[in-house]
Write a protein that binds this DNA or RNA. Structure first.
Length: 203
DNA sequence: CTGATGATGTTCT
DNA sequence: GAACATCATCAGA
């Protein structure tokens, strides 16, 4: 299966967001390889988007969004959880947030990683609870500050493999989560997920 | 099952 | 000092 190249990420943000659904995210660690299917994403559309971090201009945190498409934009949310985004388009500071993933390979290792970083016990940790949220799957996939600004096109630690596109009828559009402060932008349909998939964070 | 609440630290005002 | 692209836990129905 081929790795997605630069031109894929250079497309318009909403195009990349929907095209990412169904693709395979691959993460290599010293302990083994993890794979998962992307099932839920959100678009963040630059300065005009009242929910995007770049609404207040270029800062230390958002500098990677002013660089190449295909780079990883990571940041710590509520002091506790990492959020994984991909820079899109050639020129604009826009990105796609990966919100949820369906575990495919390395499930044992995902459990180990997530147990270490959360307060959960092995008893209360089901396969379902490994990756069905942006903070959760980052724990399972061992995503942390080391990957800030990482290039998905060249890296041997993390990349995305191509898969056949989904039909329009398989993609559900919805408003984004956790951004009630964003005025008119809070209700825009910029969240996309695979219909009737068990691993989306909220339907 | 539902809804409310606290944890926690980086960033921006 | 306030705000914040979340999650686990607890109380109540």
């Amino acid at each position: 299966m081929t790795k997605l190249g630069r031109s894929f990420y250079c497309q318009k943000t909403n195009v990349v967001a929907q095209a990412l659904l169904g693709k395979i995210l691959v993460r290599k660690t010293e302990k083994g390889t993890l794979k998962g299917r992307i099932v839920e994403v959100e678009s963040y559309l630059g300065k005009k988007d009242q929910a995007a971090h770049v609404r207040s201009g270029r800062t230390k945190r958002t500098q990677v969004l002013f660089q190449k498409a295909g780079l990883v934009y990571l940041y710590l949310c509520y002091g506790l959880y990492w959020q994984f985004n991909i820079k899109t388009t050639k020129e604009k500071p826009e990105c796609v947030l990966i919100r949820a993933i369906e575990p495919l390979q390395g499930i044992k290792l995902m459990k180990k990683n997530r147990l270490r970083e959360s307060t959960l016990t092995a008893d209360s940790l089901s396969k379902h609870n490994l990756t069905n949220g942006p903070g959760k799957w980052c724990q399972s996939f061992k995503i942390n500050k080391d990957l800030y600004g990482c290039d998905l096109v060249n890296s041997d630690k993390i990349w995305i493999e191509d898969q056949p596109s989904l039909l329009d009828s398989e993609i559900q559009k919805a408003s984004r989560v956790g951004i009630d402060y964003a005025g008119d932008w809070a209700s825009k349909k910029l969240r996309f997920y695979i219909k009737s998939n068990n691993f989306v964070s909220t339907a």
